[in-house]
Design a protein around this nucleic acid. Structure first.
Length: 627
RNA sequence: GGGCCCAUAGCUCAGCAUGGAUAGAGUGCCGGACUUCUAAUCCGAUGGUCAAGGGAUCGAAGCCCUUUGGGCCCGCCA
């Protein structure tokens, strides 16, 4: 695996050197060097200092001398740095060849971590009573990116979207339709999901605040939802599926795809809860309270000072968390699967098969469970997810079989909140579906698209409008996705409408632009680059740095997959673009009057282009050839 | 009252898992580079008590403890 090869060589040789010195059990690092310190660095001397009673500097020198005797192919020389680090310099002629030829393989960047094991990634799972807002976008982009990375890391990934079609939020819009006279058709071409969220949901919940007696209606509707033969349930089915269809359009537009859609109503009707409840009782994971404040309830004991969690109320009904438990167990394949599966009525744009659960026995049997499960939900649900994780840990012996991948929420900047009519006194504001305080995913996309169409048209007046549309789409999706993924999961994103339209600096367009530049060089060269070149011709600092960065792709993928950290790939893509832009500004490729050198550089440009394409693909971002 | 997360340049963030070299980007401000493979770019300058204090270590932005400031969670709601 490219740059990994030289790391492996160094590690092996250092181990041999240690063996010769009769030293064992040292867990030293071998990693890509910081710039200015050779190509590979090891901290080995620091770790030996105490044992050998010498300064790290002297040890580095000793190791370096011994290292010179070992067989090396990719390493040119070692060097003891006065700081104590042991640095290695690569034989770039060989490493160039290795990296550039491997980068042309389809499997470049593929890492063997999952060994083809199955892993479930659940994300999106937005209540089907509203359109996706910018906070949901963070969820779906994290989930989708993680799925793509895990596939590249040799996992078979099943992507699920859980639809809570029988919850309170759905009940609320049903109340709006059945009791407050909201028309079932949205006005003048408004998307149905937007209509439900912006109008029906917001205005219906407003009425509860004004008149608390309406709560009774709400409760009855919620109760009716559980009975599939009721008129309420039938209407709910029509409404939620229509909203879901609109939500999926938004997701698909952002290049987010799924394998299977699960409906909460079916989980309830399947009787899975009863089965898992019996199991929980058997395993004494739930206990019946005879007295105290939770008398008559079944509870899960809290950890330490934490409160007990009620799973079954004293009236015998199950609480919210009780719906999550069977679903989690189902995802892990711990229960006999009660579902049948049918094709979702619409095809996904990428033609990936999309299934949905059904209780109708006409469906087929499929398997969407996994030996591991990753559930992407924002960290406000950390407490409930912790309980689920602990329960699943009791059922399944594999460590970390159930992982809650949490992330901080997206808030609105005070300026953006102000445009929505909320004065926050300079503070950021939490979004709220009920209050109608949110920025929809579709509207952000539309604004970005408008902006990028303008920008692209200005730069390329010669391009026809359908191509402009396509380019603007790629840039808009890229920009939105990149903004949602480039920072760590535990950082709050303060969304600002104006700032989100920035297309410069650490953004997707910056990265995409470097791709377009490379494409144009290759296009103008009018030939396909050959790998049969003299690799020693690529010796300029910017060339070597670009090759090195290309070679680090696999290490990046592994790091991202191991740590479930999508931003690692975002940063890698950016680093790669920076390396290329620096190369581009300093080195000419075409028209330099030296065909061999031109060939070599074309080969490098081509490697860069295919590597960036693969890297961006993990982020769900497409780079246009022109922009 | 209990629990989780955050704090690094004016602003937004990397680096922290696995301690070691001159703590890096972007953005902003200032100054340069388009008759050149696309300036959505590049080069330079400016900018740091790594929130504070303590501890362990030869060595801390990173590990441990405490404190401060900010965000979130803790219903027989979902």
């Amino acid at each position: 695996m490219t740059f990994q090869s030289i790391l492996d060589e160094v590690r092996n040789n250092l181990n041999k050197v240690l063996t010769e010195m009769s030293i064992t059990g040292i867990d030293f690092s071998v990693e890509p060097a910081k710039s200015g310190f050779g190509d590979v660095s090891s901290n080995i001397s620091f770790l030996l200092a105490k044992q050998l009673k010498k300064s790290p500097r002297d040890i580095a020198q000793l190791l370096s001398d011994n290292y010179e005797n070992s067989q090396h192919t990719l390493v040119l020389k070692s060097e003891a740095h006065p700081s104590g680090y042991l640095n290695f310099f690569a034989n770039w002629e060989k490493l160039n060849q290795l990296i550039l030829s491997e980068s042309n393989l389809d499997t470049f960047g593929f890492v063997e971590l999952g060994n083809k094991s199955t892993i479930v990634v659940e994300h999106t799972s937005v209540n089907p009573n509203k359109a996706l807002h910018i906070g949901h976008v963070r969820n779906i982009i994290i989930g989708d990116t993680i799925s793509r990375i895990l596939r590249k890391a040799d996992y078979k990934v099943n992507v699920l979207n859980y639809i809570d079609d029988s919850g309170l939020q759905v009940a609320d819009i049903l109340v709006g339709f059945t009791h407050f006279g909201f028309a079932q058709e949205p006005p003048d071409g408004k998307k149905f999901d937007h209509y439900c969220g912006d109008d029906v949901y917001v205005k219906t919940t407003q009425k509860y605040d004004e008149d608390s007696s309406l709560e009774e209606i709400r409760k009855n509707v919620l109760k009716d939802l559980e009975d599939e033969t009721s008129e309420t349930a039938k209407l709910a089915d029509i409404v939620t599926r229509r909203v879901l269809s609109n939500q999926l359009e938004t997701c698909w537009n952002l290049s987010v795809y799924y394998d299977c859609i699960n409906f909460e109503s079916q989980i309830i009707r399947s009787g899975l809860w009863t089965k898992i409840f019996e199991k929980l009782k058997e395993m004494k994971l739930v206990e019946f309270e005879n007295d105290g404040k939770n008398a008559g309830c079944w509870v899960i004991r809290g950890d330490g000072k934490e409160e007990d969690k009620i799973v079954v109320r004293s009236n015998g009904t199950a609480t919210y968390i009780a719906k999550d438990i069977p679903y989690a167990a189902w995802k892990l394949g711990l229960l006999d699967d009660p579902f049948y599966y049918e094709k979702y009525p619409k095809d996904q744009p990428n033609s990936q098969k999309l299934w949905q659960t059904t209780l109708n026995t006409n469906g087929t049997k499929e398997n969407f469970s996994g030996s591991k499960v990753i559930t992407v939900i924002d960290s406000r649900q950390a407490r409930l997810q912790k309980i689920i994780t602990q329960l699943m840990g009791k059922f399944k012996s594999i460590p970390d079989a159930y992982v809650h991948l949490g992330y901080e929420s997206v808030t609105l900047s005070s300026e953006t909140a102000k445009t929505l009519g909320l004065d926050t006194d300079g503070k950021q504001a939490q979004m709220s579906g009920r209050k109608g305080l949110y920025v929809s995913a579709d509207s952000v996309y539309d604004l970005l698209k408008e902006r990028t169409i303008q920008e692209t048209t200005k730069r390329h007046p010669e391009i026809d409008s359908s191509e402009i549309q396509q380019i603007a789409h790629s840039i808009s999706v890229g920009t939105l996705r990149y903004e949602m993924i480039k920072q760590d999961l535990d950082k709050i994103i303060t969304f600002d409408l104006t700032k989100s339209l920035s297309l410069e600096g650490d953004t997707a367009p910056y990265i995409q632009y470097s791709f377009a530049r490379a494409s144009r060089i290759l296009e103008k060269s009018q030939r396909s680059p050959s790998i049969d070149i003299d690799f020693s011709l690529l010796s300029d600092k910017t060339e070597l740095n670009l090759i090195k960065t290309i070679g680090l792709f696999g290490i990046s993928v592994r790091d991202a997959a191991n740590n479930l950290s999508p931003k690692v790939v975002a940063r890698y893509s950016h680093d790669l673009a920076v390396s290329f832009n620096s190369f581009y500004e300093h080195t000419k490729v075409l028209g330099i009057g030296d065909e061999k050198l031109e060939n070599a550089r074309l080969c490098l440009v081509n490697s860069f282009k295919t590597t960036l394409e693969k890297s961006l693909d993990l982020l769900g971002i497409v780079a246009p050839n022109k922009m």
